[in-house]
Design a protein around this nucleic acid. Structure first.
Length: 419
DNA sequence: TCTGGGGTCCTAGGACCC
DNA sequence: TCTGGGGTCCTAGGACCC
């Protein structure tokens, strides 16, 4: 097999730069929801020593001093740009797997006779020209090695091929364990107890020992490093097993009313996703928690309910969710986050009817259809009263530095001024 | 003041069955 | 007095990913 992993460089930052070229060669960072953590960094920010995922408030003064441009997450923009990149990549292979918003595995097995590095460069040039997004290309005989090649490509000229490579051993011996796909600190520490400290040692470790230390997951990683395919391309993403909607609040909330508004909103979002995939849920869980960083008070609880009939009806599920919330709500706590989890998802056409069902399923389905249709034209045009009035939702997640949704909103198109 | 969100897979242990 | 073995299913928790 020949796998190529194409990964967008500093993806969220690159998206911002496409529509704001003044950001080129400047430090730029993008924040997570609620403007909490730093989740994307330009090379200039990486060079300043800012690590992935650090809380923004801790680095704010330092970043400001260095003239860093800061953005809230703009998922409408990133999602749309991602689609453009993926569409472009599809033209370069017979088969691909979209692995995340900014990565795809390409199957290049049919191209064994061409110069793979040249092909990689061609992919980079085209994606850059058609979408404005810079990418790196890693090529290998397994996904794990393609991943590693991509990691190396980021520090070189953008393309690395580990198939036609005569010094693979020395590359692997210079690769720390945590640079390997699937190995994080926990595994790396366990491996260290066996005297394994780099990718080459891991590749050549005895399977029995690995099986005991890391289970089958560890054995697979070693096999992949040996060039033996354990993870093939995955097609048409397998149907979701769970759907979760949860958010931290813009500020802590204490009242049951506000908490229930947030939960109703999350149910609404989760059921929308559910219907989009033509699924229904059999079980619903609500959880609430105080801030994990609050030393004085800490509270977490969750409550689940098995639905009498599987459903995707927003109103019905809000009803059950608020029932759960009543059981876990505690007065006096400052809640920072809540969420809704939908489980036991099945195809909507395979619904098991209940003799004592008192909901008119046909009617509810039509209503949901109409709501989804209208909301697809303008999001949140119709929402449930239980979620509260938008202007008064003080718990809403913060996005104080969001750029324009240039590609998905007519009223936020980029404006080019003539000089 | 301020610390993301949404997933998957694997394993161990308990409940239950014959 | 004496108290099996083998299996399935479910759940919670841990590890990992981007």
């Amino acid at each position: 097999m020949i796998f190529a992993l194409v990964d967008c460089n500093n993806f969220y930052v690159s998206c911002e730069r496409v529509f704001n070229p003044a950001l080129e060669n400047r430090p730029v960072a993008v924040l997570s929801n609620n403007d909490g953590c730093i989740v994307a960094r330009s090379n200039e920010v990486k060079a300043l020593g800012i690590k992935m995922g650090v809380p923004y408030f801790k680095e704010k003064p330092f970043l400001k001093k260095h003239g860093t441009a800061i953005f809230s997450s703009n998922y409408a923009l990133y999602g749309d740009m991602s689609q453009r990149v993926m569409k472009t990549l599809a033209g370069f292979c017979d088969d691909m797997e979209i692995y995340s918003i900014d990565e795809a595995f390409l199957d290049l097995s049919n191209l064994a006779n061409i110069d793979l590095c040249d092909y990689g460069q061609q992919i980079r040039r085209t994606v850059r020209q058609w979408t404005g997004i810079p990418v790196s290309v890693g090529i290998g005989p397994t996904k794990t090695l393609a991943k590693l090649a991509n990691h190396l490509a980021k520090h070189g000229n953008g393309v690395v091929d580990l198939i036609n490579c005569d010094n693979i051993d020395s590359i692997l011996s210079g690769t720390p364990l945590t640079d390997i796909w699937g190995v994080s600190r926990g595994y790396s520490n366990r491996l260290a107890t066996g005297g394994i400290g780099n990718a080459l040692q891991l590749r050549d470790t005895d399977d029995h020992w690995l099986r005991k230390a890391l289970g089958v997951v560890g054995v697979r990683i070693a096999h992949e490093l040996r060039g033996q395919v354990c993870y093939d391309l995955e097609h048409s993403p397998p149907q979701n097993k769970t759907i979760c909607s949860s958010r931290s609040f813009g500020r802590p909330i204490e009242s049951f009313d506000e908490l229930s508004q947030a939960v109703a909103q999350y149910v609404s979002r989760a059921t929308q996703k559910l219907r989009k995939q033509k699924l229904v849920a059999g079980r619903l869980t609500v959880f609430v928690m105080t801030s994990a960083f609050d030393k004085k008070q800490r509270y977490y609880d969750s409550q689940s309910v098995e639905l009498p009939v599987t459903s995707s009806d927003t109103g019905e599920l809000i009803h059950y969710a608020l029932g759960c919330l009543t059981k876990i709500y505690r007065k006096g706590y400052k809640f920072k986050k809540a969420g809704v989890l939908l489980e036991q998802l099945i195809d909507k056409d395979r619904v098991q009817l209940n003799l004592f069902d008192d909901v008119d399923r046909g009617r509810s389905g039509k209503l949901m259809n109409v709501i989804d249709k209208i909301n697809s034209m303008q999001s949140n045009a119709i929402s449930y009263g239980a979620a509260g009035i938008e202007q008064k939702q003080k718990w809403k997640t913060k996005f104080q530095m969001r750029s324009g949704r240039y590609t998905t909103r007519w009223d936020e198109l980029a404006v080019v001024k003539a000089r």
